[in-house]
């Protein structure tokens, strides 16, 4: 098992945003996380990546505890430490470094593996220069994989919307993750772009040997590529299973369409 979200519960004041989420991802799986607005999907992502610390429960990555910190001095992992262990993510509202070049956006993701010291970097010692060259080459490779290599000099903020989404995924890939969390990658895309995205996600899963957990509203995308699906509603896990099981699950239909008052 690659990731085990062990009975996660998080409360914000009186509101229980996610209740008793128990999620298990096997290596190489592509799993969907769906649910109506406000169901707690992104909150679940934030707990896995250490942005929030769960009120109860633990997050285990390959049996190692990676639960986030409750406060800066509390025990637990910081988001950057979790990224270093191999969990990368994208964001629902694209969060690129808009004023930096496309290439710099990707190279930054290699910084966590940098061995040279600050002095080594400033004095451009041979060790640093070699590392910088390697980082650059790897970044170009990732950009090639997502088809953005020709735009490497462009400012990230100037890219088209779909390209920005790709760049965000490229940046996450550059951290060299085992687990990739995609938060609504198809948001704002037309059906054809959604189709391309599905193929793209399939391709990177193979090429980079990834396990993927994906939040998505576009049912065509979710049902098309996800092997298993978890459904959240008001913070509770109301269903899990294969796309076919989910499509016929009455509680899921209820959550999405509401209950017929006359029934």
């Amino acid at each position: 098992m690659l990731l085990h979200a062990d009975h996660l519960t998080i409360k914000f004041g009186g509101l229980t945003a996610v209740k008793d989420l128990d999620m298990q991802l096997n290596k190489g799986e592509l799993v969907g996380l769906i649910g109506p607005n406000g169901a707690g999907k992104t909150t679940a992502f934030n707990m896995i990546t250490g942005v929030y610390a769960p009120t109860q429960g633990k997050v285990l990555l390959e049996d190692k505890d990676i639960t986030g910190k409750k406060s800066p001095t509390a025990p637990g992992m910081r988001p950057d430490q979790i990224t270093a262990l191999g969990v990368a993510r994208t964001f629902q509202n694209i969060r690129l470094f808009t004023n930096l070049s496309v290439l710099d956006n990707v190279i930054i993701a290699h910084h966590l593996h940098l061995k040279s010291s600050l002095m080594g970097a400033v004095l451009r010692l041979p060790g640093y220069r070699r590392e910088e060259k390697e980082m650059r080459e790897k970044a170009i490779q990732v950009l090639k994989a997502v088809g953005l290599e020709k735009l490497y000099k462009e400012e990230a903020g100037n890219l088209a919307y779909g390209q920005q989404r790709r760049l965000e995924i490229a940046r996450a890939l550059a951290t060299n993750p085992k687990l990739l969390l995609l938060d609504e990658p198809a948001a704002g895309m037309n059906p054809q772009e959604g189709e391309e995205l599905m193929q793209f996600i399939e391709a990177i899963r193979k090429d980079f040997d990834l396990t993927i957990l994906m939040i998505e509203h576009d049912m065509k995308v979710v049902m098309g590529i996800c092997e298993r699906i978890y459904v959240l509603d008001h913070g509770e896990t109301i269903a899990q299973g294969t796309p076919n099981e989910i499509q016929t699950n009455s509680r899921v239909i209820e959550a999405y369409l509401g209950v017929d008052a006359s029934a």
Partner: peptide
């Protein structure tokens, strides 16, 4: 240098910078 890029990433978006490790 790589450190300077990290500084700029923090300036641009702290949440994303942290998620990038």
């Amino acid at each position: 240098s790589s450190y300077g890029r990290a500084f700029k990433a923090i300036r641009e978006d702290e949440v994303a910078a942290e998620a990038m490790g």
